[in-house]
């Protein structure tokens, strides 16, 4: 459309005429393939279930019949006096704050060390053997989440688990029968550890790739100015890959809000005193165990709202932190 010198000057009828004249097969097929089909798919498989969900969330549907009563906002009112729901919301909030933060700090530290933490003379490079570490740290990510969860549930086993076995072997006898995921104080941190463990490698690789894109001259200049490794990582590397960090933070946050697979494998009943129950687990239990599909759908609507609010908050925070300068960047 760029060759239209002054589209605004054309009269409406002439514009319509021009469009009609240009309705060639090429143009129509292009529109069909690149606009109509994707939009149709989006409407059918994304928007319509969403609208349906809004409706089911306002019914008392029990899931197995075609009949249901419209109950208005009763499910939503009920939700905010339902202690189990409130606990699950708190747990999901905790996950979304802690898991991405720890994962990204660790990933960034490893990525910085293996790319720019090497000797301080000559070419800027990573620590010796950093390549091996990069590969090894990626391993957990190649294991499906459900397998990760099941393996760690065994590792945490109080009597026969690897963790207590090692702890006892090195002299900590008080860990005999210690239930890592079976008591309120340790269940959530232990579960978080598993999630962090499984994600660190992937985000390390992601950050390494981003750091490789930073011009070596920038590092050389910093080094000449006397910046140490830590200062370089914080003042040079981090700002240069801030966009990647933000994207990573959002994706990890979404994974943490859900966390369904890990939690279901570690503590399918929601953990001691529901201390690891997530919103998605609560939704699943209400629907498939309790038969409260209407209520569960309403929880799904709130979960979606929370997820979107989270993405929004992250954008605002990064915007405030970085000002508007990222508008100038090409990536």
């Amino acid at each position: 459309m760029a060759h239209h010198a002054a589209p605004g000057s054309l009269s409406f009828s002439r514009r319509v005429a021009r469009l009609r004249r240009r309705a060639t097969f090429d143009r129509v097929s292009f529109l069909a393939v690149f606009l109509v089909v994707p939009v149709a798919l989006f409407v059918i498989f994304e928007l319509s279930p969403m609208v349906q969900a809004l409706y089911y969330g306002m019914t008392n549907w029990r899931g197995f019949s075609a009949t249901m009563d419209f109950v208005g906002f009763r499910n939503y009112v009920q939700m905010f006096s339902d202690t189990k729901f409130l606990i699950s919301m708190r747990n999901s909030a905790l996950l979304v704050v802690v898991v991405p933060t720890i994962t990204l700090v660790l990933s960034f530290a490893i990525a910085a060390v293996v790319t720019t933490g090497g000797r301080s003379i000559g070419r800027v490079e990573g620590l010796k053997g950093g390549g091996i570490h990069r590969v090894v740290s990626f391993f957990p990510y190649t294991v499906p989440a459900i397998v990760v969860g099941l393996i760690w549930a065994q590792v945490y086993d109080p009597s026969r688990g690897l963790l207590n076995g090692v702890l006892k072997a090195i002299g900590f006898k008080q860990f005999q029968g210690f239930a890592w995921i079976g008591q309120v104080s340790t269940a959530m941190p232990s579960s978080m550890f598993v999630i962090v463990w499984s994600f660190v490698g992937f985000y390390t690789v992601l950050f390494v790739a981003a750091i490789k894109g930073i011009p070596a001259e920038t590092y050389e200049a910093a080094r000449i100015d006397g910046a140490g490794r830590f200062r370089t990582a914080i003042a040079i590397t981090l700002p240069q890959i801030a966009d990647t960090v933000r994207t990573a933070y959002i994706y990890l946050g979404l994974a943490a809000i859900d966390a369904f697979v890990y939690m279901q494998a570690l503590n399918p009943q929601g953990g001691p005193d529901f201390s690891t129950l997530t919103m998605s687990q609560n939704l699943y239990m209400e629907a498939f165990k309790g038969g409260n599909f209407g209520y569960a759908t309403a929880i799904g609507v709130v979960l979606a709202a929370v997820t979107m609010a989270y993405a929004g908050v992250i954008f605002v925070v990064f915007r405030l932190l970085r000002g508007k300068d990222d508008g100038m960047r090409a990536s």
Binding site: E46, M68, S280, F293
Partner: peptide, 22 residues
């Protein structure tokens, strides 16, 4: 990126409703 986030949110929302429709 908003779309990416929104799509993820929609998936979460769609998950329950797509289970079955009367």
């Amino acid at each position: 990126r908003y779309i990416a986030a929104a799509v993820a949110a929609l998936l979460a929302l769609g998950a329950v409703s797509s289970c079955a429709s009367p």
